[in-house]
Amino acid sequence: MTVFQEIGDFIVYQILGMKWLNDLIGNLIQWLFGESFASGLWGEAIHFFIYDFIKIGLLLCFLIFIISYIQSFFPPERTKKILSRYHGIWANTLGALLGTVTPFCSCSSIPIFIGFTRAGLSTGVTFSFLISSPLVDMGALVLLTSIFGYSVAFTYVVVGLILAIVGGTIIEKTGLGKYIEPFVTEGADITVEGPKPTIKERLIYSKDQMLSTYKKVVLYIVIGVIIGAVIHNLIPATWIESVLGANNPLSVIYATVIGVPIYADIFGTIPVAEALYAKGAGLGTILAFMMSVTTLSLPSFIMLKKVVKWKLLLSFIGIVMAGIIIIGYAFNGLEYLFIK
């Protein structure tokens, strides 16, 4: 083993994976309740719950802080200005990339959609942005690294971006982009730019984002970790393997369809994914589930319906679902390349 490999493993297992925390909690439960309880069904479930809850909470806070700082440089006004200078596939690519760094909350999705459209951006480019924004989250990248290692996390980001670029381009090229509500374009393109924030203001913004995001997603994490702990310890691996294993040809489709009505933050889906994976679900199946949960959700459809017509909304759902299913099967087929 080379030095680099050792450093890499240390980052993946000890810093991101927090194996030391896992051991610490294990010892603590053993010390408090005795060996037989600790190695029993409930002991292990409690162990998994506490470990995962603390690990995800710590990583989440740290990540949101760093990411918010980067995001403070890319308000949507700036993204709009950058994107309006590009055309065609380059605009879609840039839209997908900027989707990952532009701070985005669901209550702002309509003004962003209208603002982009009025600035002359094509609907396809706006959709590339809207697909990548919840899908390719930098926080998710680091969490994925902590569970599945670098290669899976990196590939997830690349295929997520490709899905956003291709999805937006299809909407563009098929002419579906014109099916937006007329009021969206009925108005002038106005841009206001706030004063440039100071470093102190950026740090305060990052801290506020960190706290409010944690408060917002803590419930999802608790639910996700509980479901994860149940799967991890109480559901037999053979069940999961037969329904979601790579050998079941329909597994990816199940995972994608189940994921659509479920609305959860990516941080809540990761503990579920982790537990399913440990129990023998296919890697592609899990990624399809995660992508489907985060990108396609009822609240976002209701939002979008206010600015686009049925034809475009349903096409958007169809295109993204098809893309996720293809990605899922590709990952299941190539799983042996990623996991040794």
Binding site: P75, P76, E77, K80, P103, C107, S108, I110, P111, I112, I114, G115, R118, F183, E186, G187, A188, I190, T191, V192, K306
Partner: peptide, 14 residues
């Protein structure tokens, strides 16, 4: 009203 909001050029709410 979204039209009125957009007239201010605002993309981030509130």
């Amino acid at each position: 009203n979204m039209q009125e909001i957009m007239a201010y050029g605002v993309m981030r709410l509130p």
